[in-house]
Design a protein around this nucleic acid. Sequence first.
DNA 1: TCTGGGGTCCTAGGACCC
DNA 2: TCTGGGGTCCTAGGACCC
Length: 426
Amino acid sequence: MPPVFALADCNNFYVSCERVFNPKLEGRPVVVLSNNDGCVVSRSNEAKALGIKMGAPVFELSGMVKRHRVKVFSSNYALYGDMSQRVMETLSGFAEDTEIYSIDEAFLDLSGFGNENLTYYGHRICSAVKQWTGIPVSIGIAETKTLAKIANKTAKKSPETKGVLDLTVSSRKESILAGTKVSDIWGIGSSYSGFLEKIGIKNALHLRDADSLLTNRIKRKMGVCGTRIIQELKGVPCYSIETCPQPKKGITVSRTFRHPIESLSELKEALATFVSMGAEKLRKGNAATCSISVFLHTSRFKKEDFYFRIKTIDLPVATIDTGELIRYAGEALEEIYRKGCMYKRAGVMFGDLLPDIRIQMGLFDDRNRKRSEKLMKTLDAVNLKMGSGTLAYAATGLAGAKSWHTVFEKRSPFYTTDWNQIPEVL
DNA sequence: TCTGGGGTCCTAGGACCC
DNA sequence: TCTGGGGTCCTAGGACCC
């Protein structure tokens, strides 16, 4: 039986989450911003129609915001994460196998539905998600993931599809492919689309039907990815549904500072905080890290004296211990810190993760690993129960506002994850 | 004044080994 | 008057994704 893939993708996800709890926002231009209220990361259709671009820095939009009464939100990841879970749970009821691809997208395996009308089935999925979570979702159906992506994009921009397009039965398949720019194909970014356009391949149909001469050039330039994209466009699947998530290979925590930081001690506090956040993630995933990297840089928009350094330390023994990692991070920082620079961003990365049951004892390791494990368990348990940050290392800085703290000035309440902020019906 | 954050995969080239 | 060659592992950098 030939495989059939569906891609369910929430419409303007972050904006839609805000609208669920604030219905007055329907019909108005709405945008959600990145950390520190920096740039636009989600736009309602009305905001898109005004020409507001993805990633646009918010200070460039102030005139537009006033003129068109654009409603602006800081990001509220607790809300979006929780809403995502609800959407994914709903979707998983409609297929044997589902793959959560991102916070707002999932692939569903719809193979074996035989003669059932999949467009109709897609509409049923959309209404269930809308009814149970309040989130609007669009669905693209096709023989491969790459085609399902295209079907989904087409469904979103063609109102007559009412949000569902099954490419396996569409009589417009060729014209849809011809109407899909190469840069809109999954796996083709700005660099590859530039190359393809230069050799005369402008749309998905051109790419699918490229002759062998062109195919060879594409393969040389784009490697196996290029070959796979062409196969997938022809309807030959190269990617399948991944039902169980692969273990993470690395963890990064980094932030841009609203105001640049010069002092070593402030950077140390910020990094100790990032280490704490990362180590918590590490333990949540039952993993340990074998290396820690620390990086920092000045503003990337000031090219003249751009300063970037990264230092990696390979650990003698894999660890889950926040305190130990903070110490290494401090050492790494001292090596790369240069006095007189105005640092705009810093972060830590844990690499070479392994399952924490596989930690090898070190021959000269004098740390009491059992004791540290117990301490970390207690730390996590307290923070889970009493709120994150209740128990923290002194190295992360004492209480009070810090210049490096991320700001969320326009954040909506934690409607679904905090009893004190639950919406009231009046 | 003000420009996000966290990932994955692939490839080329060097080091090293036999 | 002339340099071995092939396999493997690691790393850095590039490209992509949401």
